[in-house]
Design a protein around this nucleic acid. Structure first.
Lengths: 215, 215
DNA sequence: ATTCTTGTTGACCGATTGGTCAGGTTGTGC
DNA sequence: GCACAACCTGACCAATCGGTCAACAAGAAT
């Protein structure tokens, strides 16, 4: 599907490093292959080639294709959860939601593959991370809704539905990763430049923060 | 992946009807299977079972899996293009963009499968509809940007970047289809009710139209 | 230096896949 | 009712897949 060169593998080093380095290379390759081909379209052989390892070696580190896939999905989920810290320790929506948009837009640029894998997983009914949705994500969402409600009560933003605000934030920021190819095509076929990414972030923040009456 | 019953097939009827009816049943089943399993994960056998036809019959109407897939993708694209008529013959952004949001939200509810297939296709680099992106979609986008620019010049909305506004519209409305499973999980596991869908549409319109200074 | 654990790999296997095809059935125009 | 074209389908095939395994190489502990 793409003739990309193989993922860069660092030096082997000591015994402890071998495992860590190989798992890293495999996960990096897997993230890319799963994103570009989907779970069903991805093959262990292709991941192995891209990681620069024989296929049998993948099964030494990851028992099954599904195990490997689950690790990739968990990875992007944790990265997103970390980005949410911007939300909590903020005095108001301008700082909190503004920083959250910045963080998620940055992740869309630096981890586009992971975002696509997550989207694909959810679109297929979340067969392997349903429990995450029902526990971690649900709790996280409730917490953030409480913060938004507080801001509304304090008069720092208009009384919008916190849930649909969160959906709008997720949708818009992740769109720049998941639909990056479409955006690139509409950008004369070239990836967004540094300047264009800055403009995108500014545009999104401007529209959202005004939309909720925070500025 | 799901134990759903097979797609309802209408009566055969006359000779001309046979082809039309069978193609319809196949496309309906294919849309669902491609959406739930992805292109790589979908099997012609599963589509055939869901359409209530032997597998060999699918290949009688659609030469290859890719041909069938292409037809499904084209279908949702045309539906979306039709929804854009709301955009043009509108005096201003409140009516135009408001109606566009309504139309796209309705499609997300009535055609969630098609939306997912499109999302999946774009995420995988649009291997089979790249020409559509470069011709039809690009032209459509330029036309809508011109309309938005005119509204801005006429002082009917703030001077936001039309391109990022369109991305926000696409992302937000399609999110309710593509991430419908996640939304349902966060809604106590139940699909959005009629009332909740109405609230979603109202929330999105409210935030977006205020975000661009149209109200 | 010996032993044990960890890492490496080519060859292999059963299962599944998209696609084919020959031979049959059914509707339609004449 | 005859002939032609459209439609139908069970059986089959080559290719590919995820996963296994036995034999081997290499670092670590003693």
């Amino acid at each position: 599907m793409s003739g990309d060169a193989e993922i860069t593998r660092l030096k082997p080093g000591r015994r402890t490093d071998i495992r860590r380095e190989n798992e890293r290379a495999i996960l990096e390759a897997a993230e890319k292959v799963f994103a570009e081909a989907g779970f069903g379209g991805a093959t262990m052989q292709l991941i192995a080639d891209m990681a620069g390892l024989p296929k049998a070696n993948l099964h030494y580190y990851f028992a099954t294709k599904e195990d490997l896939y689950r690790r990739v999905v968990q990875q992007i989920f944790e990265i997103w959860l970390d980005a949410a810290s911007s939300f909590d320790d903020a005095p108001g929506p301008v700082e909190g939601i503004g920083a959250y948009i910045d963080a998620k837009m940055d992740i869309s640029r630096t981890h586009p593959h992971g975002s696509k894998v997550w989207a694909s997983e959810v679109m297929h009914g979340a067969p392997v991370i349903q429990d995450y949705l029902e526990t971690t994500l649900r709790d996280w969402t409730e917490g953030r809704i409480a913060v938004i409600r507080r801001w509304i009560d304090e008069g720092k933003m208009r009384p919008v539905d916190p849930r649909h605000l969160l959906y709008l934030l997720w949708a818009t920021t992740q769109h720049y990763a998941d639909f990056g190819h479409q955006i690139q095509t509409l950008n004369a076929g070239k990836p967004l430049s540094d300047r264009q990414w800055a403009e995108a972030k500014a545009s999104v923040k401007d529209m959202v923060l005004r939309g909720i009456g925070a500025i």
